[in-house]
Design a binder for these strands. Sequence first.
RNA 1: GUGGAUGUAGCUCAAUGGCAGAGCACCGCAUUGUGGAUGCGGUGGUUGCGGGUUCGACUCCCGUCAUCCACCCCA
Length: 423
Amino acid sequence: MPNLIQPVRGTQDYYPEEMAVRTWLYAKMREVSEAFGYEEYDGPFLERFELYAAKSGAELVEKQSYVFEDRGGEKVALRPELTPTLARMVAARQRQLSYPLRWWSFGPFWRYERPQKGRSREFFQWNIDLIGEDSPEADAELAAVAAGFLRSVGLRPNEAQVLVNNRQLMQTELEALGIPAARHKDVFGLIDRKDKMAAAAWAEYGKELGLGGGELAGIEKLISDQDLWKKSPTLPRFFEAVAAHSASDYVSYGPHIIRGLDYYTGTVFEAWDTAGEFRAIFGGGRYNDLVNAVGGEPVPAVGFAVGNVVISLMLRALGRLPELQAGAPVYVTIFGEEQMTASLALAAELRAAGVQVASHLNADKLQKQFKQADRLGAQVVLVLGPEELAQKQVSLKDLRSGEQRSLPRAELLAELQRILAAA
RNA sequence: GUGGAUGUAGCUCAAUGGCAGAGCACCGCAUUGUGGAUGCGGUGGUUGCGGGUUCGACUCCCGUCAUCCACCCCA
């Protein structure tokens, strides 16, 4: 073992068991996206470095991106997020596209960070965006998609919540506290850290930013005001639309939600497990200046991104992952060398009829063959021995009930389909 | 990038300077036409890697790699 070449730090091997989870999540994302009329797209995994220099946060670009020169001397980056690619793609065909765009994507991303629980260097992300519409109803549609996703993976409203706030509301309120716009970015950073720091350290950080005691107290009061949304010109409409989507049980107001990224311009939201044991499940919001930033004309947009790592950890911890069966439900044994050909032909015949069948590859003891079938997760084992062949029958054992019987070859397919449909 | 903890059988973990072990898993037999249960037996280790101290190192020291945790940042 010590001589094994180790995988790259922060990457994950997807053995069939993990791959089944990833594929299942992908299917759920697709299901919810398509239910709302969103279309799948993708961009390159490699982008010019300048794309991110133009818009992503400084930390993300300078410290967390995989950046290198290709053989032609081009400075390229493995994509650390999808939104700049999306903005670039929209800008490139700005006049030919029909708005609003409803687009979604699922794929790999890379960030050079110190790996820990819920954070790896290579991860998968679902991105979903609504482009070309600037309204509370557009924001609410994304919140409804988010709620639909949480529901479809089996998380309940008391386990996961989408928390929503609005940056413009917060800016208005900060100005009312006498904090000028130039300092809002710093204050947003301060608010973003409220839950992550001890009270004293947080107050100290506020002082370093030049905030007086009164201002700090005002901010603290602001971000604990659960009714603050009522003062917003858009959030009441947002919540009304969310209610119309029957998504209210998953979506609530969070006055402390502000998001770390600079490019959000309006509504922002994050999903959290209510127990607070994990990192944020996903985050997103409205970004109206982004297409503009990559050289297009301004287009309003709202979207969010869900990583596969945290949600998988959470579903596993809650025991909410379904039993995923990757192997074939039917297993054909090889009774002996003499029956090899007939058995392989039986398997082929069933496959041609649309049944998923794995067959044993040699004439091992039947005990071993049954054991393998069981481990591979087969539901039904077929035996074609000398007696069955002589009588043109097949023995069929249902591994769940343990029942076994022989039946005429002509009746096999219908019986298999009946058993598999019941399972 | 900063600080801390941990690396022993496939997995979970014992052994604290003196013969490297247990449970589970795996393989075999009981069971030459049948999985899951039970009993009995068996395979499996350069103690992450490299160096040092010592008569002797899983144990102590240094380095390195990896994993985990907290920062940072964020999915």
